[in-house]
C-alpha cells in the first residue's frame, strides 16, 4: 500500500478572462491550483491590484489617504492618469459614487460622461463599479457598457435584480460582467448560471463575492472564496470557475480604525501606517483566499501587496 499523497487532485481550472483592449490589456484568472500553491499547480496570471478612482471629489477621506492624490482629487481623469504614470497602476477601478441615490444621486448622463472621459484617457484596463443600487445601476451600467464600446471594460456589480438589463448591454458592447452576490457560494453559482443563460460567454464573467473589511467581516469573504475555489478546482463546478474581483478599498478606509489618530488612541499607533497596513493585510488575506484582483486605495498599501505577490509567485 502506498502512502497517501498529500497533494490535491485539481480537476478544474479557473477561466481566463481578458480585460481592457490594446497592448495593455490583461488576462486574469487561469489558475489551476489554490492561491500561491505553486508546488502543485500553476498560476499563469499573477493576481493584480487595481487602483480605485472616484468619479467625484471624496468628502470624508482621511488626510493621509488624500495626500498621494491631493493634486488630482478633483479630476477623475487626472487622478486615473496619476495612478498609472506615477504609481504604476495596471488597472483602474472607477467608483461611481456620485450616482448613489442615497448620496448625491447624480443623473445617469452626468456620470456616464465622467466614465467616458476616463475610459478615453487611459490605456490600461478599466473596471467600472456602480452604486450597488439595483435600479440605478440597471440604468447607469447599461449606458456605461454603451459608451465604453470596444474597450472591454469590466462593469458591475451586476445582481440578480438587474443582470438582464446590464447583461444584455454588456453582451451587445462586448464588456465583462461582474457577477455580484452577497457572500454565498450557491447564490454566486446561480447568478453565473443566469448570466450564462442570458448569453454572457464564460470569458466575459468575473465574480464579486462581496468584500468585508479587516475586522468587519473579512472572514466571511475569505471563507466564501475558499469554498468557491474548492468547488471550482476540485469538484468541477464549472459555474464557479471565474476570476474573483474584490472591491476592498472603501471597506477598509471607512472604518473607525483607519480614522482614529494616534493622539485619540495611542496604542493604535501611527494612523497613516496603521491604515496602510490594514488595507494591505486585508488585501493579502483576500488574495490568499482566492481573489484575482483586489481594488485598493493607497499607493503604499499597493506596493507592499505587489511586492509580496511577486515574492510568493517567485
Amino acid at each position: 500500500m502506498v502512502f497517501e499523497i498529500p497533494k490535491i487532485n485539481y480537476t478544474g481550472k479557473i477561466k481566463e478572462v481578458s480585460i481592457g483592449a490594446g497592448p495593455k490589456a490583461l488576462k486574469i484568472g487561469g489558475e489551476g491550483c489554490y492561491p500561491f500553491y505553486l508546488f502543485e499547480g500553476e498560476m499563469p496570471n499573477p493576481p493584480k491590484v487595481a487602483f480605485e478612482v472616484w468619479d467625484h471629489t471624496p468628502q470624508d477621506w482621511q488626510e493621509w489617504a488624500l495626500q498621494p492624490f491631493k493634486d488630482v482629487i478633483h479630476d477623475p481623469v487626472a487622478w486615473a492618469k496619476k495612478c498609472i504614470d506615477v504609481y504604476g497602476a495596471e488597472i483602474i477601478a472607477l467608483q461611481l459614487k456620485s450616482a448613489d441615490p442615497n448620496g448625491l444621486n447624480k443623473d445617469v448622463e452626468d456620470v456616464v460622461a465622467v466614465v467616458k472621459n476616463v475610459a478615453d484617457a487611459i490605456d490600461v484596463p478599466l473596471i467600472v463599479w456602480g452604486t450597488a443600487n439595483d435600479e440605478k445601476d440597471a440604468a447607469l451600467l447599461r449606458r456605461v457598457a454603451e459608451v465604453c464600446e470596444g474597450k472591454n471594460v469590466a462593469i458591475g456589480p451586476v445582481s440578480e435584480k438587474n443582470y438582464k438589463q446590464v447583461g444584455a448591454m454588456a453582451i451587445g458592447y462586448g464588456q465583462v460582467v461582474l457577477s455580484s452576490t452577497p457572500i454565498d457560494v450557491n447564490l454566486a453559482k446561480q447568478l453565473n448560471i443566469l448570466l450564462g443563460n442570458l448569453g454572457v460567454s464564460d470569458e466575459k464573467i468575473a465574480v464579486d463575492p462581496t468584500t468585508g473589511g479587516l475586522g468587519y467581516g473579512l472572514e466571511y469573504s475569505y471563507s466564501v472564496m475558499e469554498r468557491d475555489r474548492m468547488a471550482a478546482l476540485t469538484q468541477e463546478d464549472a459555474k464557479l470557475q471565474y476570476p474573483i474581483i474584490c472591491n476592498l478599498a472603501h471597506e477598509v478606509w471607512k472604518t473607525k480604525e483607519t480614522r482614529l489618530k494616534k493622539e485619540d488612541d495611542p496604542k493604535l499607533g501611527d494612523e497613516r501606517k496603521r491604515s496602510i497596513l490594514m488595507e494591505a493585510i486585508a488585501a493579502m488575506s483576500l488574495l490568499i483566499g482566492g481573489a484575482d484582483v483586489v481594488i485598493m486605495r493607497h499607493p503604499e498599501s499597493v506596493s507592499l501587496v505587489k511586492e509580496i505577490i511577486k515574492e510568493l509567485m517567485g
Partner: peptide, 30 residues
Amino acid sequence: MKETLIASCFVAKYAGIIVMSDFEGESIFP
C-alpha cells in the same frame, strides 16, 4: 511594513508561533 505583511501570510496559512523583530501599535493591531 513588509515584515507585518509577511506575518499576515502566516496568520492565514498555518503558523503556530510568529516571531516579529519588533512591532508598534500600527503593525500589531491589524
